[in-house]
Every structure is written in structure tokens, then in C-alpha cells.
Nucleic acid binder design. Structure first.
Lengths: 205, 205
DNA sequence: CAAACATACTGAACACTGTTTAGTAAGAGC
DNA sequence: GCTCTTACTAAACAGTGTTCAGTATGTTTG
């Protein structure tokens, strides 16, 4: 009975086609302007068809969010093979912001928009993508402790503080909360605040 | 000719009534569920009337955003009279997060949602609310430098780094990006990350 | 092979949304 | 009393997410 398998494959295929079309449109225009009808048109099906493969728009957003995480993880891959754990940490911070700048909509769906989190909540699942990414950071912090760069401490607490800072100015930038500065001063402030934070970590953690 | 003045007063009054109704509904249900028609119904006018006082929904959001800032500033007032500048800094951080927890929707419109920033952009104005609030932080950092708690440095850079960290974990929390932890662990992590950051500032800035 | 069933899909509808416009009614100024 | 301005609204436009009855195709069974 290969028919059941084929059907399952086709179902998977269709889901992927929907998410690909949705991501394509989303990256171009953002969440507000992403409509089910537009996705349907892109894949040349009716709007109602989307609902045979996804519960609602939030679930489509969740799928995009998953793809975005795997893209980010791919871009983080080169860092893993670095030797100096503190340099690793610095590079992770830089990459986080760089990813956000280059893929603002993907960053949005990963870390700002509530839509994908709402599907998770109603499924009562844990946010595994977030957990895995955070673990990666905790791991590097632990390496810094092991190398004697940081003092012995709860690596999750330190990781949370570090994530906060990097996420903080990235989110403020993405959501235009640094627009009280000129483009030049803004870039300056971000760069120097990052440098100051790295210095501060080295000295005090 | 008191008529012109009265008309102007009435115009101001109407604007205030609209914003008050809008804020009321917004705080209850958030941005997505806040509709022009609902605001109109609340003040017992037609939806089109809103557009005689505001250019679009974004401009209404901007007005709510202004009110939210003045509320936050009010709550920050007691801090100004504190004596120890470092304690001031710590209290400002605590208050920021506390305000966000107690007024999640107001925090949203102040620091996360793009809608109010879009009106500013098309008016080509500067984000004065943000500038004023940031200046307040810069001021306190300068006091820390003057008191010899921090080393001489660009207070704007230090302020940006501090704002980033506090905003970072607050925004991550508000947007449910700490839901990989249990409620208890989450509170623990936030508290300890904050404490670690304060310690780190003391030691290294 | 034909009938019965299951699956995949769609058109149309429902109840909304932000926004614009033409038209009306009431007050102000002469 | 008669213009003229201002304030306001009903209705429409073009969309939105979502649901559901109905159809057409593919699969299984007698």
C-alpha cells in the first residue's frame, strides 16, 4: 500500500509549498499585509484550501518562524568551530544583530510578533526553537566559565543577561526606537554600546 | 469673539475624548482588536467622525503612546529625588520592567508596536518622548560618572547599553519569548539576570 | 465493471476591518 | 431672513480571517 505514503508525501509537499509561498510574501510585505488569499493566489489554490493544511494564520506564522530559526542556526554554524569561547560569545552577539538587520521580518516572527507563540500556547507545547537557541548560548557561557574567563556561576542567568542586552538594542533598532538619533549617531551608539558591553563582560563576569 | 476659542476648546475636547476611549479599549484588548468603529461607538459618534480629528489609526495610536509616556514619567517622578545616583539607576531599571508588567499594552505602544512611529516618520518629526526619556537615563549615568561610581566616558553610550539590557528582557518577557521556562524559573532568571547586570555595572563601568 | 465511499478542493457567505465620499443638518455672520 | 461654514453621518469600497455546503476526483469494495 504505497498510496497512503504517497498521500502523506503529497500532504507534506503541499504544506511546504504553502509555507514557502507565505514566507516569500511575508518577507516582502510583513505580517499585516500577509493575507491568506494572497498565499492561496501565489500557489494557485483557493483560500479555503490553506485551512485544510493549517489551523489558522497563526499556525502558518509558526511554520515560517520554524524555517527562520533553521536559517539562523545555519548562519550560526561557523561560530561553533571557533576556539576562543569569549570570541565565540562576541561573534554570536554580532551575528544576532546582523541577522536581524538583514532579515528584519524573519527576526520579527522569531522574537517579536506574538502570533507564532499563540499557536504554541494553545497546543500547550514548549517553545523548542527558543530553548535550543538559548541552550547554544548557555553552552558558550559555560565554556567561558570552564576557561576561567568568567567566574563560576549559573550559566543560564549569565546567558539570559547577555541575550537581553543584544536582543534589547536589536529590537529597539528594528522597531524604530532609536529614531531620535541621526542614522550616523545611531550606528555609532549601537557599535560603541556593544563594545562597552563586551568590555564589561570581560571585566566583571 | 469667544466663539473661535470655544470651538477650539471643543475640538481639543473631542480629540481627548477619542483618545481616552481608544486607550480604554486598547488597554483592554490590544492593537489588533482595537477598531475605529469600536472607538466611535464608545463615544457615540460615527466612525467617519474619528477621521475629522485624526489622520488615521496610527495617529490615534501615537496619541495613546504620548499619554502612556506621560503616565510612565509620572511613575518615575519619585526616583528623581533619590540621592544615590547608582540606586537611582537600579530603581529606574526596576520601574521600567514593573511598568511593562502592569501595563503591557501601554509598554507595547511605547516601545514595540511600529504604528505610532509610522505617523512620526511621515510627519518627519523626531521622537521627542523617547528622546526625553532617554535623556533622563543619560542624566543619571552622568551623575554616576560625577560621583566616581562610573569612570569618565560617553554617558549616551553607557545609557544605551543599560537601556538595551533592561528593555531586552522586558520585551522578551512581554512577547512570550521566555515561555521555554516555567513561570517560577522565568521569574528567577529575570530577577537574577537583573541583579547580575547591576553587579556587573558597578564593577566595570 | 459499477456502485459506494473517502478525499481534495472551491465558491460563496459571514462578520469584520480601515478609509473615503457625497450629502445633510445645524449654527454663525451679515 | 439668507447665505455660508462647520460638524457630522450613511453608505460604499476594497479588503481581512474563517467557515461551510457542495462538487468533483480518486480509491476501495461487492
Amino acid at each position: 500500500m504505497g498510496i497512503v505514503e504517497r498521500k502523506e508525501r503529497e500532504k507534506e509537499d503541499m504544506r511546504r509549498r504553502i509555507v514557502d509561498a507565505a514566507r516569500h510574501l511575508y518577507v516582502l510585505n510583513g505580517f499585516e499585509k500577509l493575507s491568506i488569499r494572497a498565499i492561496a493566489e501565489e500557489i494557485e489554490y483557493s483560500a479555503a484550501t490553506i485551512y485544510l493544511y493549517f489551523k489558522d494564520k497563526n499556525e502558518v506564522m509558526y511554520a515560517i518562524h520554524q524555517q527562520a530559526f533553521s536559517k539562523m542556526m545555519q548562519e550560526f554554524q561557523p561560530i561553533v568551530s571557533m576556539t576562543d569561547p569569549f570570541e565565540k560569545l562576541v561573534m554570536m552577539g554580532r551575528k544576532y544583530t546582523q541577522f536581524a538587520m538583514e532579515n528584519p521580518e524573519l527576526f520579527d516572527v522569531m522574537f517579536i510578533i506574538t502570533a507564532p507563540m499563540d499557536t504554541l500556547e494553545c497546543r500547550e507545547e514548549i517553545w523548542s526553537e527558543g530553548r535550543i537557541a538559548f541552550n547554544m548560548l548557555v553552552q558558550v557561557v559555560q565554556e567561558c566559565i570552564n576557561a576561567g574567563i568568567f567566574q563560576p556561576q549559573d550559566p543560564e542567568v549569565a546567558a539570559m543577561m547577555i541575550w537581553s542586552t543584544i536582543h534589547g538594542y536589536t529590537a529597539l533598532f528594528i522597531r524604530k526606537r532609536m529614531n531620535m538619533f541621526s542614522d550616523q549617531r545611531r550606528a555609532e551608539l549601537m557599535e560603541q554600546a556593544f563594545a562597552l558591553f563586551c568590555d564589561s563582560l570581560r571585566k566583571s563576569l
